[in-house]
Design a binder for these strands. Structure first.
Lengths: 188, 188
DNA sequence: GCACTAAACGGAGACTGTCCCCGCTTAATT
DNA sequence: AATTAAGCGGGGACAGTCTCCGTTTAGTGC
């Protein structure tokens, strides 16, 4: 489904360099980091960057897929080790923290959560939705979460809480507080 | 505190034209609308625009002050005609709807809500915080809202809910739903 | 090894947007 | 009518995005 031919060696090299540099650049300058600058820092021409990643979104996604997959995997891990309610609380906390910590990931997760989003972010969106679905269903089955909630609602609201927490610049404790408040509203 | 001299007639004329055009442009193209284009549409040079409004934020604020003041005023209106709890619900609904409806206002309100924000947005921030404080205090006094909430928390969370609702493109009913969920978490 | 070819490169350049600067214009004042 | 400073406005430097196309090079068959 991906490539018929394997990538040429130089192409693969550049691809990975770009990814590494991009992650640094986004972390440093936020999601608005200059793409030409990223290309330059990776020692390639801008043409090369745009060939590999046609849009900023595409690069953003590629740079953070692993991080997002890790968050999704974490959901399952928590789901196995904690009772459903606590697993959900903890996951939402980590999700929000991650969203804020990695500057630029917010825009990415936002579009991953949006329905009918760009094809580029589908992979991420699917992982997150899958992870959310499992935790949400478990919590609902255990009777600790309202039954009228869809997983997508939970993801959207988490995104909202992350945004809200971000407005309280520098106060790290606020995330847990706001997640806590949100969850009281979502309890069964 | 504002001007020692009154503004020259042509200056005032341009100022108001810019404001009007800017509101249209932001509504049409979102908060990223081209400033030079706004200047052109208003029939002035870009220098004139930048003299009146040194930053995008400044223009954004000026274009929407009246709208924000209206929202703040609405808080008092609701506070007088409805019981505290319902007033708060209704106000948050209108606030979120307004935030989403007027594209570009989100960024503005965001910085108005942020502590230690730019001087430019202080006026808006003050109105909103004042309005929020009155509604929140009343609701707390009536025992329908948790006592450990600051008005700024409520504003931040409202902003978060607006963001969350926005992710559900096109579904207008979702705002009330999400505001409702939030408020269940904030109840005393 | 060598020649061949398609994949990949890269940077010039067109375009758009931001923002400042400074010579010119004009409203207000006497 | 003369004066003057507030205000004007567009030219231009700069930064970013994205494309096009001539050049280079990895991989392959002989």
């Amino acid at each position: 489904m991906t490539q018929v031919r394997p990538m040429r060696a130089d192409a693969r090299r550049n691809y990975e360099r770009l990814l590494k540099v991009a992650a640094e650049a986004f972390a440093e300058h936020g999601e608005g980091a200059s793409l030409d600058d990223i290309a330059k820092r990776a020692g390639v021409g801008s043409g090369t960057l745009y060939r590999h990643f046609p849009t900023r979104q595409a690069l953003l996604e590629a740079a953070y897929v692993d991080r997002i997959e890790a968050l999704a995997a974490r959901a399952d891990e928590l789901g196995e080790t904690l009772p459903p309610g606590e697993a959900l609380v903890e996951w939402l906390n980590e999700l929000c923290a991650g969203t804020i910590e990695v500057r630029g990931m917010k825009a990415l997760l936002g579009s991953a959560v949006t329905d009918g989003s760009v094809a580029a972010v589908t992979a991420c969106g699917t992982s997150m939705k899958g992870a959310a679905t499992r935790l949400v269903s478990a919590a609902q089955a255990a009777g600790v979460l309202r039954g009228d909630l869809e997983p997508i609602d939970v993801l959207r609201l988490a995104h909202g809480v992350a945004t809200a927490s971000e407005l309280a610049k520098g106060d790290g404790t606020v995330i847990r507080r706001y997640v806590g408040l949100l969850l009281e509203g979502l309890e069964a």
